[in-house]
Amino acid sequence: MSIGNSPEDDRPSLEDDRPSIGRALQQARIDAGLTVDEVSSSTRVRIPIVHAIEQDDFSRCGGAVYARGHIRTVARAIGLDPEPLVEQYDAEHGGRPAPTPAAPLFEAERIRPERRRPNWTAAMVAAIVAVVGFVGFTLVNGADSGDDSNVAEGPGAGQTATPTKTATTKPTEVKPDPTDAIAAVPKDKVTVKLTVVGAKSWISAKSHNGKLLFDGTLRKGDSKTFQDDERVDLILGSAGAIELYVNGKKIEDKFESGQVERLSYTKGDPEVG
């Protein structure tokens, strides 16, 4: 009778015969007729990571937690039960970490003294009360000293205070001098100023070479000023709504409301073109 291992002990176990995780996933993917790109698209696991997992390289997963998640996701996508593969992963890579007991942590947190924060609200209230009290004290003292000065400077006994009449003068109206406006405009240019005094008016203004200076609608109160070296051409859509100054001089022509006027002005005294 020989002493040693029996023939049954020499036989490999069933677990040793099973394929690796990567090989099992790769074979199941091929059997399902799927490519790595298709698995990556359906699982959102990047293509290099799928290739690495099929080669049993889990270093690109970013840790054991992510590796388990990728194994489950890929296995479900190719129709494979993920739990045996996850158990195999845990057996080959040291298993899941033991959960940390919650009771000691809770006790430590309960025993730890709580730091008291400074009460900024109370400090601000106290500062405001102090400021208000100081201002009130200052106002009361100022009022008392003002009363004493009034008594000292008042009329003597038996005298009647005579009310003093304050002379009021009306402000003098200063009318603008038309010559000032004329003097303000340059002599070597044509200056045209438009002001809408009616409801609104469409305006178009061009320089002597046809350059468009303005084209649009102005409403009541709007003003525009145009200048050119030689000539300014105007089209007034509603001339009666316009007050017109040319080279500092007001144009007295009576335009009718709604009337379209085409005007041209040059340097010097304004002339209607």
Rank of each mutant, 00 (worst) to 15 (best):
A130M: 12
S59V: 04
L105D: 10
T266C: 09
R116C: 07
D215F: 10
V131Q: 12
R110K: 14
M124L: 14
K220N: 08
T179P: 04
S264V: 10
R18P: 01
W120H: 07
H70R: 07
A126N: 02
L218F: 05
G146P: 01
K200V: 01
L194N: 03
Q88H: 11
I71S: 06
W202G: 14
S13Q: 06
Q26Y: 15
D56A: 10
P186Q: 04
E230M: 06
L14E: 15
G63A: 09
D269V: 09
P163E: 09
E230W: 00
E114P: 04
A77I: 03
E252V: 07
D180R: 03
A157G: 09
I3H: 07
R29D: 07
K187I: 05
D144L: 10
D81C: 06
P178K: 02
R96G: 08
A102K: 14
G273F: 07
K206M: 10
A102R: 15
V272E: 13
E87N: 14
Q88Y: 05
L105Y: 07
S41Y: 13
H51E: 04
P82E: 08
L212N: 07
T217C: 07
A199E: 14
V125N: 10
R110H: 12
E15W: 09
T35N: 14
V196P: 02
K189N: 05
E114Y: 02
C61W: 03
S257P: 06
R231P: 01
T100M: 13
A181Q: 04
V125R: 14
A127P: 06
S201L: 00
D56C: 02
T169R: 13
T162N: 11
Q88D: 06
A127D: 08
L14F: 12
R116E: 14
G268W: 00
T43H: 00
T169N: 10
E153K: 11
V132H: 08
D10I: 08
I30S: 13
I78A: 02
V132T: 15
S59N: 07
V232Q: 02
R262M: 10
F137H: 09
I30A: 15
V151R: 15
R46Y: 14
E38A: 05
P101C: 12
G62V: 04
T191W: 02
G240N: 01
G248V: 00
A126R: 13
G240M: 01
G62E: 13
R110Q: 15
G273N: 07
R112C: 04
G4V: 03
V86E: 05
Y245F: 13
T73M: 11
A24M: 14
K211N: 05
A64N: 07
P178M: 04
G268K: 01
F106H: 12
V131A: 15
I30Q: 14
V185F: 05
G79M: 07
V86D: 08
D57Q: 13
T169G: 03
A103P: 08
K211A: 12
S204A: 12
T168E: 10
A183W: 00
D37V: 10
P99G: 07
Q227V: 06
G136P: 07
A102T: 15
L218G: 03
F214Q: 02
V39D: 00
K254D: 12
D229K: 13
G268D: 03
S13L: 01
S42E: 11
K165E: 11
T43E: 03
N150R: 10
T160V: 14
R262S: 06
D215R: 12
A91T: 05
D148F: 08
A161V: 12
